[in-house]
Design a protein around this nucleic acid. Structure first.
Lengths: 212, 212
DNA sequence: ATTGACTGACAGTCAGTCAGTCTATCAATT
DNA sequence: AATTGATAGACTGACTGACTGTCAGTCAAT
């Protein structure tokens, strides 16, 4: 077969792109390395020249997501024209709207075939987003918007709560039904965890909705 | 080979027992179906007579854990000599002390090879324990120990918080260090989420510690 | 001439299949 | 009571196809 040599970084990215697409379409276990290399148009050996195993390329894909999140979170944390509440809300907006191609990442994760991807993702997210998230909370404490002795634990609690509720919502089918009520509940929980004034997150949500 | 016919239920349990042991020892992916049947002393075909796939036996293992939890939780929920706070604490004590052989289940789950098992477990736990847990919370609201409009969401939040913090603790190595401080933080969070009197969980914890 | 990206046939492994065997338990017959 | 025949369903293990990962060697670029 005609041999095409490419810049290693380009080739690596190319393989990761295709692998990601196939994993999301058919699931990790159902995608063979041979499927990936066929689509990329390289040999089996090339795959193993760049990745030491199939598991290894999954890690590379996850790492890319995490990097995207890091960049987004840092950008939000660095803003100086919004307060801690607005930052936290911006942060959730950002996570919710992360997409892959045209679809929401979060939708993919909740399909049964992607447990593997999902587990790896949730295992790696906290260590990367807790520190900046924690910083936002500490900022809010200093601004007297929040009141907690345990900002790091509060950050973990909010992330954990969000994961748990989002899993719950996806397992139950009646998602469309009562988004309003759920938003109310989530804001209520966040306010309690952070020791913020009851209702203040909803106030901000309405304010920001109006500003659009 | 000598053919030994057993009561199907016994055989099924026997296969699950061995599979569980091997999965926990070596990990799901690293354990071959042939390893399992060799240990049990049956043929490959017998395995597939009882389980439709390798994934299927993993589900059976998880189901057994979940059933154990259900039984334990129901027993706690049914007690009428303790209040809602004591029930919730008993519930966490029960989860933490679930064991398999001589080791704590929770310790096994956090070993790297068991991501698959752990992920499936956490995916299935909520739908089974949220309802009774939620009932305990509602009981507490009626007893005026708690104050929340969203008992179901509070239950999810507490479970999610617990998962997140336990992952966090296992990833960081300094677990042994500050258990006291973490207990303080977790109780603080639970009290906030449930709208309980600050410090009341710690009070009960000390009281129960003394009672032993 | 050397480096390193790339090849593709191949070894080894494993999940899952299947045609058929064996055992236990009947009821019917001797 | 003992023997037989019939049936269900537990069980077998060689086999298949498909997969992951390897490696000795090839080719393009510098």
């Amino acid at each position: 077969m005609a041999r095409i040599v490419k810049d290693p970084e380009t080739r690596r990215t190319e393989i990761i792109d295709i692998a990601e697409e196939l994993f999301l379409k058919s699931g990790y276990n159902e995608t063979a390395v041979s499927d990936i290399v066929k689509r990329v148009g390289v040999s089996q050996g090339t795959f193993y020249y760049y990745f030491k195993s199939k598991e290894d390329i999954l890690n590379a894909i996850i790492e890319r997501y995490i990097d995207d999140i890091k960049v987004g979170v840092k950008a939000i944390a660095a803003k100086d024209d919004i307060n801690a509440i607005e930052k936290i809300m911006a942060f959730f907006g950002f996570l919710n709207n992360m997409d892959i191609g045209k679809e929401k990442l979060i939708d993919y994760f909740h399909e049964d075939q992607n447990v593997h991807l999902h587990a790896k993702f949730e295992k790696n997210v906290p260590s990367n987003i807790i520190p900046p998230f924690c910083q936002m909370i500490e900022e809010g404490v200093q601004e007297d918007l929040f009141d907690t002795k345990y900002p790091e634990m509060a950050a973990l609690s909010i992330i954990g709560t969000t994961f748990a509720i989002s899993h719950w919502m996806y397992d139950k089918e009646d998602r469309a039904g009562s988004t309003k009520k759920i938003m109310g509940a989530i804001f209520d929980l966040i306010e309690r965890i952070l020791g913020a004034k009851p209702g203040i997150f909803m106030e901000y949500a309405i304010k920001m909705e109006g500003a659009k």
